[in-house]
Structures are given as C-alpha cells and as structure tokens.
Amino acid sequence: MLLRIFTEPQQGASYETLLRVAKATEDLGFNAFFRSDHYLKMGDVSGLPGPTDSWVTLGALARETSRIRLGTLVTAATFRLPGPLAISVAQVDDMSGGRIDFGFGTGWFEAEHTAYGIPFPGLRERFDRFEEQLEIVTGLWRTPVGETYSFDGEYYRLAESPALPKPAQAGGPPVIIGGGGPKRTPRLAARFAQEYNTPFMGLDDVKAAYGRVRAACDEAGRTEPMVYSAAQVVCCGRDEAEIKRRAEAIGRDVAELRENGLAGTPAEVVDRIGEFGALGSERMYLQVLDLDDLDHLELLAAEVLPKV
C-alpha cells in the first residue's frame, strides 16, 4: 500500500506552507504530495491568505522536490480549456522529470465558479465537456512528435495542432478519475484512466464502486491493469488526548472521524487502511487538513507507513 499526502489549500494555506508540507512528505518517505484544485474555501474557516492555483503550485514544487510524485485530486475540467491544460500539465511533468499524476474531474462546487466568473453548466453538459476534454488532453500527449492532432466535438474543436510540448512520461502522466457515479464515471475510467479513486466513501460504497469499474473494464475489453485507490481524512494520535486535539483543530468529532475516516491510534489507522486494502485499494490518499501540524506527518511516517 502506497501512502500519499493530500492537502486542501483553499481552506487556508500559502505557497510556503505547501512547500513545507511537500518537503516533509518527501523527507519522511511518503509516495506523493497531492493537492485539491479549488478557488474558494468551504465551511467555517478563514481561507486566508486565499486560494493558490494548483498547476502554478505544482510547477514550483516540481523544482523543489526530487522523488515524490505530484498531482491533483482533482483538476476541474470547468476551470481550463483542454488545449492549454494539456500544455500546462505537460510542462510541469517535464519540470518534475516525469513525476506527475493527473487527477481530472467534472468540477462540482458552483459557488467558486460564481465567485470568480467561471461558467458552470449543468451536470450533463459538464460530463459531456469532461469526456471531450479527456479525449483532447490524452490525444495531444500521445500524438507523435512531427504529427498533428485534430478534434471535432460538440464543445471543442482543434485543427492541426502540433500537440506540443510533450510530457516527460511517454504517452502522458497517468490519469486518475474518481467519484461514485454509477454509469458514466466507470465507463470513462475504463476508457481513459490508469487509476480509479474513491473519495471519502465508506467501505461498502467503495466495494460497490470498485465493482462497477471492474465491470466497465471487462465490458470495454480492457487489458491494462487498473490501479484502485481511496482518499480519506486522517487524524492520528499517540493517545486519546492527542487524537481529540487533532480532531478539534480541524473542527471534527473523534467518533465521527473513526466512523468516516482514518482516525485513532497508529494501530487503529493501520487496521482501517488494511480494510481498504482487502477491497483492492493499492494507494491511500491521507487528507491532512491541519497543514501546520508537521508532527502529525512524522507520527504517520514513523508508526503507520512502515506497517502498510
């Protein structure tokens, strides 16, 4: 089981804070540093100093780290046109030496679109645009150097694009698609993704979602293995007092976190991760919400990471 650190910078984090967490992630032996792609805070937090752009951040971290993989859970298709997005991600992949994983989704948080003047179509149209964007982004990356790429869809049209620059990873960064959608999500994951992620879902729902994606892969005749992963909030402490302190720091209840996340002593967290592993999870994204608590990462690295 690979453990990846997953952050939510829109809740209040400067680039310097993210840099400290990313360097700790690398130094402590975790597999990857991921961040969300949001432009507006959620809930009763200050959100100061304000949002940071995911791909600007990852481009900088690509030059400040050397081993960990970097990525988004997940880039919103509503935020960027597919051609420029393919260029940005390819450039950051090159800047990192081929360490990018590309989490990609439809976008869902209407308030952030309203706040920053970003169009927010209905769900069906968002999925239609998302599918076209998946075709375009992966098509641009996979077009051989010296050839051109064209696409004629309902929402996007590209004519004889040089399809440059190329990512460092041949064919492009691995694509991560997630969510619990019962029909289109499994089909799109089977067609385009190297990894399928279940965000903040209970074990029964994870089992069902993995089953739908496996069935979609079989129906599509897919032979490439799919990586299955899960994201869960983490709140680990050496004793009950430390667990409670960490839960209070992120505005959560310990009992609720034990039910709906990875919470408790290191042994409890290890056991809970094992339950996801039994369903087929190969990677766990540990959502760390208090980015000033680097001791939390040190505890996870010392007492959880070696045991999973």
Rank of each mutant, 00 (worst) to 15 (best):
F130S: 04
M95S: 10
P121V: 03
M226E: 08
A230N: 12
S88L: 08
S14N: 12
E110V: 03
A249P: 02
E275G: 01
L188I: 00
A278E: 03
V56A: 10
V45P: 01
T198Y: 00
V89Y: 05
D37L: 00
P174R: 13
D218A: 15
A76N: 03
M1C: 10
G280I: 06
M1T: 14
G280C: 04
H38R: 01
P9I: 06
V89R: 09
I243Q: 02
E16I: 06
E224K: 09
R283P: 10
F6E: 08
L279P: 07
F33Y: 09
E16W: 15
A189R: 09
M284L: 15
L294R: 14
A159I: 14
P51W: 04
F30W: 01
L140S: 07
T25C: 05
R246V: 05
V270W: 06
L286C: 05
D295I: 15
V145Q: 15
M42W: 14
L134G: 04
V213R: 08
Y39G: 00
A60K: 14
T78F: 03
T138P: 09
N197T: 03
E242V: 08
L279W: 02
K244R: 02
G103K: 15
E160C: 13
E240V: 00
G12C: 01
T148R: 14
G153M: 14
E259Y: 00
D204L: 03
R69T: 09
F192I: 00
A241F: 11
G211V: 14
R214K: 15
D44N: 13
W55F: 13
A170L: 13
G59M: 06
P144M: 04
L58K: 05
F200K: 00
P173E: 05
A90H: 03
N31Q: 12
T65K: 02
V227E: 11
L140K: 09
V213W: 12
V304H: 14
A263I: 12
A168T: 11
G202K: 05
R99E: 10
E303I: 07
T7V: 06
L61Y: 08
D204C: 01
T114W: 00
G280S: 03
R99P: 07
G12N: 11
R129G: 04
K23E: 10
D44R: 13
E8M: 15
L300G: 08
C235I: 11
N197W: 12
H38W: 09
R184V: 05
K307I: 07
R246K: 07
G277T: 03
L18K: 07
G274H: 13
P225W: 05
Q11E: 02
F34N: 08
G221S: 09
D101R: 14
T198E: 00
Y228C: 13
G251A: 00
A22R: 10
I87K: 11
T114C: 02
P162K: 10
